[in-house]
C-alpha cells in the first residue's frame, strides 16, 4: 500500500522531479563516492536515518530474527512443560502473558514459536522466488511458448480460492511443516511470476541487453547476469510483503488443524486453542500469539519500502 501511494505521488511530480534529479546528479558527481559493500552500508544507514518508519521496521525485524535464533535460550519457562496447578492464570509478574488451559507459559510459547513461523516464512518465500521468480523472468525475456506455459500455469493457480488451494495441497501431501512451505509457495507462484514477467519484459529490448548480446553473451547468461539483478529490488520488496502473507497462511492452516500439530508452539495453533477460552474471559491465550502475528506481518510489510530504497542503485545519489 505504502509503495503504491508513494508511486502515485512521485508520478505526479515526475516532471519537476527530473530537474531535481539533474541537480542531485550534478552534486553527486562532484563528491567522491565509496564503492562496494561500504557504500551499501552507508546508504542503508542513510535510508534508515531518513525515514523513522523504516528504522522502526528494521529494529522490529532484528528483534524477530533474534527471537528466532536464540528464543529458546531467553525464555523463562519450558514452552511445553505444563503446570496444572497454575492453569488459566491471567498475565502476572511471574507469567507475563499468563498461562493456558494446561498451565503452559504463554510468553515462552510465543517467543519460541517465532523460530518455526519465521523458518516457514523464509523458506516458502525462498522457494516461491526460485520457482515463480525465475519462471517469470524467463517468460518475460524469452516470450513465445515459455511465456504461454508460465502464464497459463499462473492463471490456473489464480483460478482457485488461494487458501482453499493451500488447504487442499496440505491435506493431500500430508500434515508436515515441509508441506506447509510447499503449499504457501505454490499459492504465491502467480504473484511472483507475473511481477517478474512484466519487469523482465520491459527490459528485454533495453540497450544494455543488446550491448550484452554484442559482447558475446548467450541468452541464458543475459537472463541471469543482466536482467535478474535489475529486477531484484522489486522482487525483494515482493518477498518482504509475502513473508507476512506466508506467516498468516501458515498460521491459518494450523488454526484449522492442517499444518503444525499440537503441542508444538506455533502462533496459529495457539490462537486456535485460545479461541475457545475467549468467551469465558481468558482472552490472553489467543491475544498474545495473535499480537505476535500481527506485529510480524506489520513489520514485514513496512520493511518492503525500506528495502527497495536500499537496493535500488539509482537512489544512491
Amino acid at each position: 500500500m505504502m509503495t503504491a501511494v508513494r508511486k502515485l505521488t512521485s508520478g505526479k511530480r515526475a516532471v519537476t522531479a527530473t530537474a531535481a534529479a539533474a541537480v542531485a546528479k550534478a552534486a553527486s558527481a562532484e563528491a567522491k563516492q565509496p564503492s562496494g559493500l561500504a557504500a551499501t552500508i552507508n546508504h542503508a544507514r542513510y535510508v534508515i536515518a531518513e525515514n523513522p518508519v523504516t528504522g522502526f521496521a528494521f529494529a522490529l525485524f532484528a528483534l524477530i530474527v533474534l527471537c528466532a535464533l536464540i528464543g529458546p535460550l531467553l525464555v523463562p519457562h519450558d514452552p511445553l512443560a505444563s503446570e496444572t496447578t497454575a492453569a488459566l492464570k491471567p498475565p502476572s509478574w511471574h507469567h507475563w502473558f499468563g498461562t493456558d488451559q494446561i498451565g503452559r507459559d504463554v510468553f515462552s510459547r510465543v517467543i519460541v514459536a517465532t523460530r518455526l513461523d519465521f523458518v516457514i516464512a523464509v523458506s516458502s518465500v525462498a522457494l516461491v522466488f526460485l520457482m515463480g521468480g525465475l519462471a517469470g523472468v524467463a517468460a518475460g525475456f524469452f516470450g513465445g511458448w515459455t511465456d504461454r506455459i508460465v502464464g497459463r500455469l499462473a492463471d490456473t493457480i489464480m483460478a482457485f480460492p488461494l487458501f482453499v488451494l493451500a488447504m487442499g495441497i496440505v491435506a493431500a501431501l500430508g500434515n508436515t511443516v515441509q508441506n506447509i512451505v510447499i503449499a504457501t509457495a505454490i499459492v504465491n507462484f502467480p504473484l511472483y511470476a507475473r511481477i517478474a514477467r512484466s519487469e523482465a519484459n520491459v527490459r528485454r529490448e533495453a540497450g544494455f541487453v543488446q550491448a550484452a548480446r554484442l559482447s558475446g553473451n548467450g541468452e541464458f547468461r543475459i537472463l541471469l547476469g543482466q536482467i535478474l539483478p535489475n529486477i531484484m529490488p522489486i522482487m525483494i520488496v515482493q518477498m518482504s510483503l509475502t513473508m507476512g502473507y506466508a506467516i498468516l497462511n501458515a498460521a491459518g492452516l494450523s488454526f484449522i488443524g492442517l499444518g503444525v500439530r499440537p503441542p508444538t508452539a506455533e502462533w496459529g495453533i495457539m490462537v486456535a486453542e485460545g479461541a475457545a477460552f475467549m468467551v469465558s474471559g481468558e482472552w490472553w491465550i489467543a491475544f498474545f500469539p495473535g499480537l505476535a502475528l500481527m506485529v510480524a506481518v506489520f513489520c514485514f510489510n513496512l520493511l518492503g519500502d525500506g528495502l527497495r530504497d536500499i537496493f535500488d542503485p539509482q537512489r544512491r545519489t
Binding site: 564503492s35 533495453a206 550484452a212 559482447s215 558475446g216 539483478p229 539509482q314
Partner: peptide
C-alpha cells in the same frame, strides 16, 4: 540505456573481454 544500471563502468567495459 545501454549500460546496465547495476554494473560499474569497469564491469561494463570488461563484459566483451570476459566473453570473447
Amino acid at each position: 540505456d545501454s549500460l546496465n544500471p547495476r554494473y560499474t563502468a569497469a564491469r561494463a567495459i570488461a563484459d566483451p573481454l570476459l566473453r570473447m
